[in-house]
Amino acid sequence: MLTIDRLTKRRGSALILSDVTFQARPGRVTGFLGPNGAGKSSTLRILLGLDRPTSGTALVDGVPFERLPDPLRTVGAVLDGSGAHRARTGRAHLSWVAAAAGIPRRRVDEVLAEVDLTGAARKRVGSYSLGMGRRLGLAAALLGDPAALVLDEPVNGLDPEGIRWMRRFLRERAEAGHTVLLSSHLMGELAEVVDDVVIINGGRVVEQGTLAEVTGAHRTLEDAFFALTTGARGDAR
């Protein structure tokens, strides 16, 4: 269970997040949706202890991320990019992550196979395509077989086949009882995957509920999204 409670973040005079509150529950895929710059990444970064909130809390199973006894086995995270230095090989990257978390080395080969990077494991990350980099990030997140996954724009950079694979993968994780929280600005790609929806715009949560509740009277989630986000900020898209 991921609990975001009254999160506010200021950078200088800019208000990045204002009173953001929502939860991501086990066994469900929670979609965190909003236009670029709405505050999705900032929220996820605070949840993962990368950025500090001005006020409010973000907890993993009731505990701040920094105090988790075994973070990599609790939450797997993929933020933008690969999260790997371009001069290292994919395998070397996963090896140090495994070493830091005390995870056996054989697990590195397992996750490489799982994201279909076995063939590129000895190549430098700098030579990877955008999609390969994303899959390497996912491999690192899966090393500890965590109970929760946090993914920032998971379908960015993936080809159509990769997007399909990702959707199936996320459903399987949720059905196995895991928590999945993903952010996206692409509605069409996500409507089929998510159970719960949180829509953020201009640093504020403008709507949340199950997929059916949020879609409501609108024809699709996409229509609902545009109605909510353009209405709240008043800028035409």
Partner: peptide
Amino acid sequence: FTEGESAGS
């Protein structure tokens, strides 16, 4: 140099 921006290329 690409430091500071984590986006791939």
